[in-house]
Amino acid sequence: MKVLILGMGHVGKALAAKLKSDGHTVVGTTTTSEKVETLQAHADEVHVLKGSESDRVKSAAQGCDAVVATVAPNVKNTRTKEEREVQYEEVLVKSCASAAAACGRVLFLSSFSVYGDGGPGDAPISEATPTSNHEEPSSKYYQAAEAKVLESAEGCVLRFPDMYGAPGDMDFPARVKMAADFFGGKILFGPDAPLYAIHFEDVVDAVYHSLSKELTGVFNVCDNANVPAANKIVFDAICDDIGIDRLEYMNAIKAPNRRISADKFYATGYSVQHGDPNADVVARHASS
C-alpha cells in the first residue's frame, strides 16, 4: 500500500514509521522546507506544500492508495474567534478538499468538537448524535472538512478528543500553566464537560487499524470504559497541585457534556490502551 500523509507532525511521523516497518510506501508533506531532511528518515518521499494547494497535493498523491489528513491548526493562532475562522478553514477544510480531490480513499483525524455539548438528553453521544455548535469555527470547520472526506464512499473520519503524550508535547500541568500565562488565566471551554483525552500512541494505532481494516464512515475513538472528570475538577486539581490561581471558564466552545460512546470503533477490533492521564491528580485532591 502507498499512503500520502498530509501533515507530518508527531502523529504523521509515527504513522509513517509504522507503515514503513510493515513494508508500505509512505509519501509525507510538510509546510517547512527546513524539516525535509529530518522527515526523510520517516518517509520515502517528502513534499513541501500546504494542504490548500490542491494541485500540489494531487501531484504528491499520484499512485497512492490512501491519503491520511493529520492536519491541525496551531493553538497559538486560535485565541479569538476571528483567528479561528481563518485558521480552521484554511488548515482543515481546504486540506481535506485537496485530499478528496486527489484520492477517493481519505482518512481524516477529526474532533469531538463537532458534537458541541451533545444536545439534550442523557444517552451516550454516538456517531448518530447530530453535530452542533455550527457557529464556532473550531466545530463548524471540522464538520465541513468531514463532509469533504465523506463525499466519497471510501472516506473515513475518526473523531478524537484532545491528544496528549506525543514526543516533546506539553503535559496537562504545562497546558494549564500556558493558559495562565498566555491566555490570561482563561480557557475557552466550559467547566462541566468531561475532559476526554487520548494518548498519542492510541491515535497512531487507531489510524493504522482503520487503514488496515479499510474502514469507512465515522467513528468515535476514546477510552470506552471510563468517563473522565469534568474540566473544572481536573484543572482546579492541577492548579492547586502546581500552586497557581484557578482558571476562568469562558464557555465559548461547547464540549460534549456526557459519556461518549466508542462502541462502533471497538466493534471493529480496536481498543484504547492508555487510561485517563488526569485520574491520579484528581484522585489525590479528592482525598485531600
Rank of each mutant, 00 (worst) to 15 (best):
153 A>C: 02
144 A>E: 13
160 F>A: 07
147 A>G: 08
148 K>E: 15
151 E>R: 13
132 S>Y: 09
148 K>M: 13
138 S>H: 00
141 Y>R: 13
149 V>Y: 05
141 Y>K: 10
148 K>Q: 15
160 F>G: 04
152 S>P: 06
143 Q>W: 03
137 P>L: 09
134 H>N: 11
154 E>K: 08
158 L>G: 02
139 S>L: 08
142 Y>V: 11
152 S>T: 12
151 E>P: 12
133 N>K: 04
134 H>W: 11
152 S>C: 08
155 G>E: 09
133 N>F: 05
150 L>R: 06
153 A>V: 02
154 E>G: 06
159 R>A: 11
147 A>L: 08
155 G>K: 09
134 H>D: 10
155 G>P: 00
155 G>S: 07
137 P>G: 02
140 K>A: 01
159 R>S: 09
150 L>K: 06
144 A>M: 13
132 S>Q: 08
155 G>C: 05
133 N>P: 05
137 P>I: 04
143 Q>L: 14
132 S>V: 06
149 V>T: 06
149 V>A: 12
157 V>Y: 04
134 H>R: 12
136 E>K: 00
136 E>H: 10
149 V>E: 08
130 P>S: 13
146 E>C: 07
156 C>Y: 05
132 S>K: 07
151 E>A: 14
136 E>P: 01
138 S>Q: 01
131 T>A: 14
132 S>A: 15
133 N>Q: 10
139 S>D: 12
149 V>F: 05
136 E>S: 10
157 V>R: 00
132 S>I: 04
135 E>H: 07
146 E>I: 11
152 S>H: 10
159 R>C: 11
153 A>G: 04
147 A>E: 15
159 R>F: 02
153 A>I: 01
149 V>H: 05
139 S>N: 10
154 E>H: 08
147 A>T: 13
147 A>Q: 14
145 A>E: 12
152 S>A: 12
143 Q>M: 15
155 G>Q: 04
157 V>L: 06
148 K>S: 12
160 F>Q: 04
155 G>R: 03
143 Q>G: 14
139 S>C: 14
135 E>Q: 13
133 N>G: 09
144 A>Q: 15
141 Y>N: 09
